[in-house]
């Protein structure tokens, strides 16, 4: 698998209809930033770096120049496993039509306090 495709949150594979891509000189890393204590790490973007240590340092310089983070994760883009974007309709079908999983489905209790 080649790198170079995941600033989209949509999978680590190169676009199927895109031109063939030679192997990038430095691997691609996906960067996740925790903006403050109590919050999850959130995907911020990607970068190229020769190894993990450089990837963390570059991620700091690239994505936290204004105190945007208190913690960083870098993940080799090739290690990310994704759902198949071509079959997303079937794959995410199950919760469709199951409105009763949401509180808003239950309307008879409207006006009742603390419910």
């Amino acid at each position: 698998m080649t790198g170079g495709s995941t600033t989209g949150d949509d999978g680590a594979k190169a676009p199927s209809s895109g031109p063939q891509e030679p192997r990038a000189a430095w691997p691609l890393w996906e960067v996740f930033v925790r903006s403050s204590r109590g919050l999850s790490h959130v995907h911020a973007g990607s970068l190229h770096a020769p190894d993990a240590q450089m990837a963390v340092r570059n991620a700091r310089d690239l994505y936290t120049r204004r105190n945007e983070g208190v913690s960083l994760w870098v993940v080799p883009a090739t290690s990310i496993v994704t759902s198949d974007p071509d079959s997303k309709d079937q794959f995410f079908e199950s919760p469709q039509g199951k409105d009763y999983r949401h509180a808003t489905y239950y309307t008879k209790s409207e006006g009742v306090k603390h419910l």
């Binding site: 170079g4 495709s5 676009p15 891509e21 310089d61």
Partner: peptide, 19 residues
């Protein structure tokens, strides 16, 4: 930094940064 964000975005279209 802006250059790098944009190269990353362009790469998602299939052209590697080195190119």
């Amino acid at each position: 930094g802006h250059g790098l964000y944009l190269y990353s975005a362009a790469e998602t279209l299939g052209t590697p940064r080195d190119k």
